[in-house]
């Protein structure tokens, strides 16, 4: 097991910060319109820039890249936290059903919104409302007894996701083909319909989530020994679970509300970084924020450019890229450990 020293943490986060910076640069320079680097730099340097290049760089690419980074960070950090809290390597940000609630809220508006005068702009608030309701239900279940049972949480999540899936299938079967296409794209996850006004909200939930959970990192490390052992070492397991549940749910809800159900980021990035950096959550939590942000921004740059002006949902790219990458890393890890 790798011992975490301040120098090692600083070095690791510096490298990841550089990767994120590179990803952000790629995100700003990649696009179907073929703007040159000089044009992009001049637009960025000029506060009063106008014209197609300014619109593309400042009002299309920049908000999208920033929001992609925030969403990626939210998903990856939530993934780390859920995996630690549930002590289950298969846990991802969507495991507790929060995403199901958000998806149901968003898809209700997507499928029925036009009939009641609601446009696509109403989707994120509706999705976040769905997330809040689900989180409240989960919290009520978690707090029903003195002890917070991860089994109860997991089972509730599985059941709620199944219920939400059934409701979504029902809504999709009633929808016309254009609504059906919107629902399909939203379920895969996409950053194409971003709105700049929501970026600040996602940033707030990410900062709050990190602020609330980073102090728990040592407790999460000890939780790996098992609940009772961790409690004997002074960890308040129930409080830790409640904080992780609420903070992660809000981060997931914020991410899903604006970008749909982007998969793999919250599963792959934590595992990938755990393989590289070790299991210490004091490093893993901030590293996942950087890693998730960089991964999603790079995937979105691919999604925007691979089809020459036509868009691919970024969720398809994260799954296509994340799966093989993860298997390759896992194989390397096993070779290193068992050789």
């Amino acid at each position: 097991m790798k011992i975490l020293t301040p120098m090692r943490a600083l070095w690791s986060l510096s490298v990841l910060g550089a990767v994120l910076l590179g990803a952000l640069t790629l995100g700003l320079t990649a696009g179907p319109s073929g703007l040159g680097l000089g044009e992009i730099l001049s637009v960025l340097a000029d506060r009063d820039a106008s014209g197609p290049a300014a619109d593309i760089v400042l009002r299309v690419r920049l908000p999208r890249v920033l929001l992609g980074a925030l969403v990626g960070a939210c998903l990856a950090v939530s993934g780390v936290l859920f995996q630690a809290m549930l002590r289950n390597p298969l846990a991802d940000p969507y495991v507790l059903g929060v995403s199901g609630g958000a998806a149901l809220g968003g898809i209700l508006v997507l499928s029925l919104g036009s009939a009641i005068g609601l446009g696509y702009a109403a989707v994120p608030p509706a999705a976040f409302a769905g997330c809040l309701i689900t989180t409240a239900v989960l919290y009520a279940i978690a707090g029903a007894n003195a002890r917070v049972s991860t089994t109860s949480l997991l089972l509730t999540g599985v059941v709620f996701n199944a219920f939400a899936s059934a409701a979504i299938v029902f809504l999709a079967s009633m929808a016309g083909l254009t609504e059906g296409a919107s629902i399909f794209l939203w379920l895969i996850g996409s950053l194409s319909s971003i709105r700049t006004e929501v970026t600040g909200w996602v940033a707030i939930f990410l900062v709050l989530g990190l602020g609330a959970t980073f102090p728990l990192a040592r407790g999460l490390n000890l939780s790996a020994l098992g609940g009772e052992s961790a409690e004997q070492l002074g960890v308040d397991i129930d409080r830790q679970r409640r904080v992780v549940l609420i903070a992660s749910s809000l981060m997931v809800g914020a991410a899903v509300s604006v970008a749909g159900m982007i998969g793999f980021v919250g599963l792959i990035i934590p595992h990938l970084l755990r393989l590289i950096l070790g299991p210490d959550h004091r490093l893993l939590i901030p590293a996942s924020a950087f890693g998730g942000a960089a991964f999603l921004v790079i995937c979105d740059a691919v999604a925007r450019t691979i089809l020459d002006g036509r868009e691919l949902p970024v969720g398809a790219i994260t799954a296509l890229a994340g799966g093989p990458l993860f298997l390759w890393l896992l194989r390397r890890y096993h070779q290193r450990v068992f050789s």
């Binding site: 179907p32 197609p52 619109d55 593309i56 194409s192 925007r304 002006g309 036509r310 868009e311």
Partner: peptide
């Protein structure tokens, strides 16, 4: 230029 009847395009493409 897109052969399909109803292509899904990006906003950036439209601005360009």
């Amino acid at each position: 230029e897109y052969p399909e009847p109803y292509p899904r395009v990006s906003l950036e493409w439209l601005i360009a």
